[in-house]
Nucleic acid binder design. Structure first.
Lengths: 286, 286
DNA sequence: TACTTGATCTCGAGA
DNA sequence: TCTCGAGGTCAAGTA
């Protein structure tokens, strides 16, 4: 096993196949320094909170971020198999293996954690004599809502800590906001004679993307979507048109226009049934 | 720089502060072996596809999965700042630095990639003589839709490849499916005398979660949500009730019931306006 | 493939 | 803090 630990200016520290206690110390150090911590190894994962889940043992990549986020990734999928949102408190400790004590639930882990912390208080960073008989455990918790993620490693292949900086800003185009700007700059794209009067106009059912009137003076409710739309977008538009009709309790004709690159067939039919219209437009022009 | 590369049975390979070409070779090897590959370093990220984005230089953690997924994580947030879904083709190559050739866009990178591949074809794994003047570049692309992610590293702190196995299955409870089962097993939870007749009953507006009748013989449309609901859920329920009314074109009373742990005030009002009902239920009992 | 909807959705803006 | 809607949403089930 080799490391490149030397000074605080080291931006990346890596341990390969560390003992549980060495892993624990390196991770604790990384969390302390507000570094990004990664652990790869065979582990089980338990979650309890908004829902609850259990995951049997397998090789996974765990990332602990300094903002409190935790991510558990398998070798498949874009989404983590388990996670915890930013704002959590990360904790790391060692607990006895099952051969010594069955620890299959949260309560047992709580006891083990208390013991580990008591030990750490007393013994400093002295290596645990039972190092090889200890499991590395990562825990991320938060309140509101009360949630807890527990990752128990049977085997740790690698621990890394990364101290980085990132001031880079992301610029994104092709969003619904771009579609809105495009129409506001050239209202004729929607329909000749259209006049936007407000964006985000509030109704009892929510905010209308663009509120305006056509060249005949009819009120127009416009709902924008950056991509092909289904029935949900039609419902949304209908809800706003409905609310505005009640709100204005006027007899003036009220038009609802859905603006998107395209519509599904079912959505098209729903639009017709409710007297709503569709205009094909993409978020960005060529 | 140290590594623990030795045999194919090594499950994790790590390079610290590698040269661009060493990083390229290790990553190419990892991709070839269908390992999970991670790279940490200072990089810029460009995306073009369903939308388009640019991200200025910063320290980030990049993960390439053997299923084709790519993730770029900063030190903040649960979500990756950039990504690519499973099914993409990953590629790695070196391109000249800007001091030699301005390479600020996709076209230039394409040329550099072609050159790099031509070089690889001819020279095998021989180290590039301009290793220090080369940037490591990761590229993930797919079609339908055409999308491309390009990560250019100015500096690579660590490259790792992980060969793991994961047959562990996730069991999750507290979902909408659990709420449905709970009601089907004990329909009185919804209301005394309720009889479920079908789940996922199709209408022209979509599928109804639970379709049934009350003890008076009225048709009941039930929409389930695992958590507190807003106006969107009310719209959804209304859409189904509406569609069923048209579908059955009957005069029989049709009831719509939204089942969720709780409801927002605005949604509550909308329910009332449309003659819909609410029943408070959680996905799991105590 | 495309469609439809759930999700421990996440995230940001606004009240 | 809660509400509300967008998202390069993702992922699963279905036709």
């Amino acid at each position: 096993m080799t490391t490149s630990r030397s000074t605080q200016s080291v931006r990346a520290v890596t341990l390969e196949r560390p003992t549980s206690t060495a892993a624990r110390d390196a991770i604790a150090d990384g969390l302390e320094r507000e570094a990004l911590v990664t652990v790869f190894g065979r582990c089980t994962v338990d979650y309890e909170g908004r829902a609850s889940s259990q995951l049997a043992a397998g090789d996974r990549h765990v990332m602990l971020k300094p903002d409190g986020a935790a991510l558990v990734h398998t070798d498949e999928g874009q989404q983590p198999v388990n996670w915890q949102p930013p704002g959590c408190a990360h904790d790391v400790f060692c607990e006895p293996t099952r051969s010594e004590a069955e620890s299959d639930d949260f309560d047992k882990s709580e006891k083990a954690k208390d013991a580990a912390e008591a030990d750490a208080d007393g013994g400093g960073s002295v290596a645990d004599p039972n190092a090889d008989a200890a499991l590395l455990v990562l825990e991320s918790t938060r309140s509101t809502p009360e949630e807890r993620l527990l990752v128990r490693f049977q085997d740790v292949l690698q621990v890394s800590t990364f101290a980085g900086t990132d001031e880079g800003e992301l610029t994104l185009s092709g969003t619904e906001a771009d579609l809105r700007e495009r129409i506001l700059e050239n209202p004729d794209l929607l329909e000749s004679g259209f006049t936007p009067l407000a964006t985000e106009r509030d109704t009892p059912a929510g905010a209308i993307d663009i509120y305006g009137e056509d060249d005949a003076g009819n009120t127009v409710v416009v709902e924008l979507k950056r991509r092909r739309v289904g029935p949900d977008a039609v419902s949304q538009l209908r809800r706003y048109v409905d609310a505005l009709e009640r709100d204005l309790h006027a007899d003036a004709t009220l038009r609802g226009i859905l603006v998107a690159p395209s519509v599904t067939e079912r959505a098209q039919r729903l639009l017709g049934e409710h007297g709503l219209e569709f205009v094909s437009l993409e978020p960005t022009g060529e």
